[in-house]
């Protein structure tokens, strides 16, 4: 069981979360050409080691989180809200 320290709810089992995917993907503009979208949607670094990825606390606060996690050991290095504005507000509230 991976235990994810949700910035809003505290440490929780990973089964409360939904897995998003690669957190480093920059989605092109909606009117960008298809080639850019193909790259963003289909191509993956598929890192063995620490990767940035998105998770959603579906059965909790429903916030999307950006998590740095080792895909070999499952160790989590950092967790922050995926939304920069929310992340910043959270930081300031501390």
């Amino acid at each position: 069981m991976i235990r994810i320290p949700c910035p809003f709810c505290g440490e929780r089992d990973h089964s409360e979360f939904g897995y998003g995917g690669d957190g480093t993907i920059v989605y092109p503009a909606l009117d960008a050409p298809a080639e850019e979208w193909v790259e963003a949607i289909f191509e993956r670094e598929n890192i063995c080691g620490v990767q940035s990825e998105t998770w959603q606390h579906v059965n909790g606060c429903r916030m999307w989180l950006l998590i740095e996690r080792n895909t070999m050991t499952h160790e989590i290095q950092s967790v922050r809200p995926a939304h920069e504005g929310v992340a910043k507000a959270l930081e300031e509230s501390k």
């Binding site: 069981m1 991976i2 990973h14 990767q51 990825e53 998770w55 895909t71 070999m72």
Partner: peptide
């Protein structure tokens, strides 16, 4: 197991 992993071991859920 729903999340990306290179570990050859599973989890309880």
């Amino acid at each position: 197991d729903w999340y990306k992993s290179y570990a050859q071991r599973g989890n309880l859920p």
